[in-house]
Simulated assay, not measured.
Amino acid sequence: MVTLDHSGAPTEGAQQGSLRHLPLPLFAVPMGLGGLALAWREAGSVIQAPAIAGEVLMATAAAAWVVIFLAHVLRAFRHHEALAADLMHPIRSAFAGAISIGLMIIAGGAIPYSVPIASALWLAGVALHLVIGVWIVRSLLLSPRDAATLTPPLLIPLVGNVLAPIFGAKLGFLTLSWMLFGLGALLWLMVQPLILQRLATGPALPAKMRPTLAILLAPPAVGSIALMALTNGVGPGPLGIYALAALVAAVLVTLWPVFRSAPFAMSWWGYTFPAAAFTIASLKVADHHPMSWHLPALWLLLLVVSAMILLVSLATLRALWSGHLLQPE
């Protein structure tokens, strides 16, 4: 915990001690907020939601990414061994992929304002994500891990490539976007069966890790949106992938009693981006294949997901304020 000197200010040693335990999974925060921002943007055109909501959320996501990134840069200078330990950890290292995914989401947020800036951010995010992916695959080959460490966060750095085409296609990087989609989709087909086998045969996930089961929703939800962007429509391919996302979402809803029992941890952010991505996919499908019941259903989905992300955000701020966020895991 942070200690105070005689003036009532935190001491330097206490600040450094807290920074040592800065969670790498904090980079899931701009992912979740940015995903929700994109959902509100999409809702603005499909169900006439207030356009300003998406812009405010995107600005908040960008600010959060910058603050968290600078905090980790400071951590790297003061406690490089702690950051290195996270990057070598069989589970926490997967959240390095959230750094580059957050950057790609911010690039998508910048498209309406400056295509050159958005392109630069997107290319930087893609390059960083590929480097992180190489690092993760290399570690899998050189350091075989126990089955217990094969958890859903492993999908973030490997399957996260399917996110890139959503923005890359709009920015004109069509060939590269198709390549990234294929890379992410194929890695998904290779990695997810390993995770499902681990979940089906055990050992059971610890209570704090159970919210990461929601990450299983992200690949089909994001994959359907990416294929819509690449094909400029909602045809059989995107609809088929979206159907899988809907099935996973329904399963996750039935797991609500299990999720309720999980104590607060950064793993709660595992709910946020997948839920936002599924909301975006649902809005896009409804826009191309409208039905009479879509409007109230879409509003309900958007508001429920927004409330959930608000609750996770407030819980995180409360943990930060109390000092529990910067404690050894």
Rank of each mutant, 00 (worst) to 15 (best):
M1H: 14
V2D: 04
P10Q: 14
P10F: 12
H21F: 14
H21P: 10
H21R: 04
L22C: 03
L22H: 04
V29I: 15
G32F: 01
A37F: 10
A37S: 12
A39M: 07
S45K: 04
Q48Y: 09
A49H: 05
L57C: 00
M58G: 10
T60W: 11
A64L: 05
A64H: 08
A64S: 15
L70M: 11
A71R: 01
H72I: 12
V73H: 08
V73P: 07
R75V: 03
H79Q: 14
E81I: 00
A85S: 11
D86Y: 08
L87N: 03
M88Y: 06
S93K: 07
A96H: 12
A96G: 08
A98S: 13
S100H: 05
G102T: 00
L103Q: 13
I105G: 07
G108R: 12
G109T: 02
P112I: 05
P116V: 01
A118S: 01
A118H: 10
S119D: 14
L123D: 10
A124W: 02
A124D: 12
G125K: 08
G125E: 00
L130F: 13
V131D: 03
I132Y: 02
G133W: 05
G133R: 09
V134C: 13
L142V: 14
L142C: 06
P144W: 11
P144M: 02
A147T: 13
A148M: 08
L150D: 08
P157M: 09
A164F: 12
F167Q: 11
F167T: 13
G168W: 02
A169Q: 07
L171I: 02
F173Q: 07
S177T: 10
F181W: 13
F181L: 13
L187Y: 06
L196V: 14
A200C: 12
T201G: 00
A204M: 10
P206G: 03
A207H: 04
L217G: 08
P219Y: 05
M228Y: 12
P238L: 11
Y242L: 15
A243I: 11
A249V: 01
T254G: 09
P257A: 00
V258A: 12
P263L: 04
A265K: 08
M266E: 00
Y271S: 01
T272S: 15
T272R: 02
T272L: 05
F273I: 06
I280L: 03
I280M: 03
K284F: 10
H289M: 10
P296A: 04
L302D: 09
L303M: 09
V304Y: 00
A307W: 06
I309C: 13
L320K: 10
L320N: 04
S322Y: 06
H324F: 06
H324E: 15
Q327F: 02
P328L: 03
